[in-house]
Design a protein around this nucleic acid. Sequence first.
DNA 1: ACCTGAACACCGTTCAAGT
DNA 2: ACCTGAACACCGTTCAAGT
Lengths: 235, 235
Amino acid sequence: MRDDDCVSTSPASRGRIGRPPVTTRAQILAAARRIIDRDGWEKLTVRRLAAELGIGGTTLYHHVRDREDLLIQLLNEHAKRTLSVELPAEPRDRIVAAAVAIHDSLAAWPWAAEVLTSDGFLGRLGEPAVSMVEAIVAGAVECGCTVEQGVDIFRNIWYYTAGEILVRAHSGQRRADRPRVAVGDTFFRGVDLSRLPRLAAIGDRWPTLAARDIYAQGLRAFVNGLLDQARSAAR
Amino acid sequence: MRDDDCVSTSPASRGRIGRPPVTTRAQILAAARRIIDRDGWEKLTVRRLAAELGIGGTTLYHHVRDREDLLIQLLNEHAKRTLSVELPAEPRDRIVAAAVAIHDSLAAWPWAAEVLTSDGFLGRLGEPAVSMVEAIVAGAVECGCTVEQGVDIFRNIWYYTAGEILVRAHSGQRRADRPRVAVGDTFFRGVDLSRLPRLAAIGDRWPTLAARDIYAQGLRAFVNGLLDQARSAAR
DNA sequence: ACCTGAACACCGTTCAAGT
DNA sequence: ACCTGAACACCGTTCAAGT
């Protein structure tokens, strides 16, 4: 049973019951994506989504538990499309590739940052996302880790990935609304840098340095460090 | 000086100027902390804070730019009190100790998760927090890194730390409001685990495994991995 | 200057009804 | 069943005015 079937079968039954048919799960998600693409994800509210569908705000609550539920459904749909299942055979490379896949999928949807921290997030993920978790845990075990160590490695990678996505999602907006720091102005305002020689030496180069994408390289260092640690713990 | 004093001193000055005097920066921060301690940080809103101070909602905007500004001021005050400045001499240990100090300081204030991702967050930090950044960058340089590599190492550690804090802040609430997953129920609901043997083997042990605090250990693995990577890049 | 009430432009969610 | 308007209980922020 596909969700779309509900749409195509509804016109048939509409002859009997005189009501607007815009209530499918697929249609709700499509409308939500339309709002995100057109107005930006900040505009995706329950009320706006209802208006986009041409239904009353209340009606939405018959198909979606709450706003969080909507966002997680949206993310799972996105994951199903973007999470490539082609992963390298070598376990260490596979761990890295799975993490990068999760990262890139989330990075493409800035609104993901909002849903990232919702309650029981991991437990509500769909199959494509969960299979990436499996890939990381299995890769760790193939590298000689116990299952427990594999879970720890996944969790550590997840913290790193979630943090990068969250920080990225919120520093991207900066340029848009706020006027950039004036030239010659210190980046670390209101802080006495005389006791902080390294930061003083960096000065205004900080924003430039911080703009570089270091996720993939940092990830590899992390995975190496974690596998080394697990190996030396087993010894 | 207690906040209550202002209430009691106000009748004295009220003879001349007929206005409530509750407008100090320190008083605002104290009132904000009172709300957080009494009602929980979710209840800290501009309106409630104004009510707590006994002033009009608008008046607050004469002393605080906006809600975000308020939260960052609050965090800086907190950092000033909790960020210990005693750091080990050995550079690698110092990096770890500085990161742990940042982490523990943030972990003690669950509302920190909200402010973590605000625009230009790093640039608005006060001296205690910035000195921890200096410690990490300086430690990396003493380990043989370039300044650029030192900044990268700080940023990577920051992503990891911010992610851990954010995930932690939002999984702690779970127990409170939502009924726990029923016993015997699968943790990964609605997902076919037949192709995911590792996760199937873990099953319901996941929540227990995920509850363990692995930050410090993961951090050390990360720092080792990052320093190794920087060293091999220099070779 | 410093402070104010009232208003603007929203939120998520729930209730008691309607068809 | 399915859908609704209206209301509840809030938000952050701004304006034109008051003292």
